[in-house]
């Protein structure tokens, strides 16, 4: 269960959002500029709310009244950015292994095989990120986030930087991840079709406010 109840002033723009979701994939839907990225940056711990609370499965991540702000590196919340953000100086293999090393987890070859097969990136392991296509990069970024064994996975328009054919290439992987990886996800998009295919619960965001919340049918409402 992810509970978010926050306010944040960002220059002229303000966010006042509150929702709780138990869905496997919570879709954060809204036009660009609705505050989607700022909101998941707060869930990730990269941005601190001015006021409010964020909790995950009962663990408090942020509580401004008690001055609690758990730093991002201690949240175990994975984040797949729109622009992949692979480490350019590391091979694909080292990129995938990064989260495991930082969290002091034991090396798990079976898990590595499972994830690389799920995302079809086994043949890329010895390459440098600079030599990958956009779609390959995004798949490696998905694998890197999953292999850190997160409690929640944030996906910020993971298809946004890709062209039409690449989107069609990645979307099935996201659906497989939803059905096989068993990690709850928050999926951010402004594309209603993607939302329908992936999300199980929708949070509609407009000008920093939640306008509606519910099943996929709110998209047509």
């Amino acid at each position: 269960m992810l509970r978010v109840d926050v306010t944040k002033q960002l220059g002229e723009f303000s966010i006042e959002a509150s929702f709780a979701s138990e869905g496997r994939v919570t879709g954060l839907f809204g036009a660009s500029g609705a505050g989607k990225t700022s909101l998941i940056n707060m869930i990730a711990g990269l941005l601190a709310p001015d006021r409010g609370k964020i909790s995950l499965d009962g663990d408090v991540l942020d509580d401004t009244e008690k001055t609690i702000h758990l730093p991002a590196y201690r949240r175990r919340i994975g984040y797949v950015f729109q622009d992949a953000r692979l480490f350019p100086h590391l091979s694909v293999r080292a990129n995938l292994d990064y989260g495991r090393r930082m969290n002091g987890l034991a090396f798990d070859p079976a898990q590595l095989t499972r994830i690389t097969e799920l995302l079809d990136i086994g043949h890329l392991l010895d390459r440098r990120p600079g030599k990958l296509s956009g779609g390959e990069r995004q798949r490696v970024a998905l694998g890197r986030a999953l292999l850190a064994k997160p409690r929640l996975l944030l996906l910020d328009e993971p298809l946004g930087a890709l062209d039409e054919s690449r989107r069609a290439e990645i979307l099935p992987y996201l659906i497989r991840m939803r059905d096989e990886a068993r990690i709850p996800m928050v999926f951010v998009s402004h594309d209603a079709a993607e939302m329908r295919q992936l999300a199980t619960q929708i949070v509609m965001l407009k000008h920093g406010r939640v306008t509606s919340f519910g099943g996929v049918k709110v998209l047509s409402g």
């Binding site: 990730a44 711990g45 990269l46 730093p71 991002a72 590196y73 201690r74 949240r75 175990r76 919340i77 994975g78 984040y79 950015f81 622009d83 953000r85 480490f87 350019p88 990064y98 989260g99 930082m102 969290n103 890197r144 986030a145 850190a148």
Partner: peptide, 11 residues
């Protein structure tokens, strides 16, 4: 943004 990515991976 790379440093942020590292942070979300537990660094």
């Amino acid at each position: 943004r790379l440093e942020q990515a590292a942070e979300t991976l537990g660094a």
